[in-house]
Write a protein that binds this DNA or RNA. Sequence first.
RNA 1: UCCUCGAUAGCUCAGCUGGUUAGAGCACAUGACUGUUAAUCAUGGGGUCCCUGGUUCGAGCCCAGGUCGGGGAGCCA
Length: 463
Amino acid sequence: MIEHTSIKSLLKGEVKAPQNVVVKGWVRTIRNSKNVNFIALNDGSTILNIQLVIAAGTDAFVICEQISTGACIRAEGLLVDSQGKNQSVEIQCNNIEVYGHSDPEKYPLQKKGHTLEFLREIAHLRPRTNTFGAIFRIRHNMAFAIHQFFHQKGFFYMHSPIITGSDAEGAGEMFKVTTLSLENPPRTNDGSINYMEDFFGKATNLTVSGQLEAELGALALGNVYTFGPTFRAENSNTPRHLAEFWMIEPEMAFYDINDNMDLAEEMLKYLINFALENCKDDLEFLNQMYDKELIERLKSVTAKTFKRLTYTDAVEILEKNNKEFEFKVSWGTDLQKEHENYLVTHFGGPVILTNYPKQIKAFYMKQNEDGKTVRAMDVLFPWIGEIIGGSQREDNYDKLYARITEMGVDEDELWWYLDTRKFGSCPHSGFGLGFERLMLFVTGMTNIRDVIPFPRTPKNAEF
RNA sequence: UCCUCGAUAGCUCAGCUGGUUAGAGCACAUGACUGUUAAUCAUGGGGUCCCUGGUUCGAGCCCAGGUCGGGGAGCCA
């Protein structure tokens, strides 16, 4: 049986003072004086610390000589109402056991502020800071909320493969997966690498999207979603890109593009509300330390109806301001970040754009009757830009096949995908949400490397 | 990948026009202190000036190449 109590439950008043308690955690600061020492102890259950009060003359007071910032201890004592101002309760501590010392000359985390750049270099220790404790607790809550949201709506969580044999999604550069010798791979007669001898008997990669597999699930189970790691070998060096990130991809049978937008909007609002309700202390910390408008912005997004308009209407608005843009807009061009920002600012909140020109979108999107556009939808968020990209899917075999050949996609790699349009095809839709992009918005962090425990980016796979 | 800025103590930074022994704040150590909140006060220790090469009597400073990091852009979620 676990003998100690979480600091969260003590500070929430779930244990009535006075009462003997045991806590275990890591020392944030220790303040010494002649007659009394104070320790701020954190166990990760909450951003708040509990104060240990150690009077001179106790065994614990002597042990304090070994304790410094970062040490891990077990502390036992009487939980009492605090005499100090900054906490409701504290522990009059008479017994301390040191689990792990922390050499104060060498421990990198000081009891002062550190830059996020420095903390990235010590990603193995940064969960012990207030900031990253808050971020990772919020990250957990968002992951949990995603499952809860879909489960409540009757969706099934589907595990799409991490290793894929097709390079057909066209979603970006892929990481190769192989057990062949890099120094001396087997060759075919024409000198190319013989993947027949590779582990899977063919060339394989890490997935760039679980969407195509999710569609297979939707055409059997109705509504499904994937939520797993995704890999892009793009040489992207920005605060919004990772080589390994997590993506949520719902896929729904019998949803048209409007149902798709409704779901995307409902989901984003649900998740943000969940954070506001369940991550109050952590959000308040981030609001105070990093982004004074964070909580206000989160509330405003949940209250607002997302502005929906077509790509064509958006281009019309943008064209009026072409002189302000580095990249001029005209119908058929892909929208740049400056254009997305303009629209989000123009409408004062999230924007959903639909019906893009087919030539700038993927082969699987449902073609409109006009012959020019497809039923794509992008949800644009302040600063982040495209937080969700999705579409109604092309469910007509002939149209899908035509598009595949037009775009030079290898049909042999997609025979199974095409099969679903041969046998019991149906209208369906889906979208992809970048989990870390959601985290950026919810935490107010501005660099995606700070919302995932161990970021993978070009030239960085430490830890 | 392109543009741009940067790298000096454990951290955050200053360092003049190229010139003697490279500084500050915080952190840390020691001491003081009757309840502190990133405590306070005093004293002290602490440097591969990112790397390689060059210019120079002399380089933290100038030049070239590289590495890593920040911001912007592209690719995208």
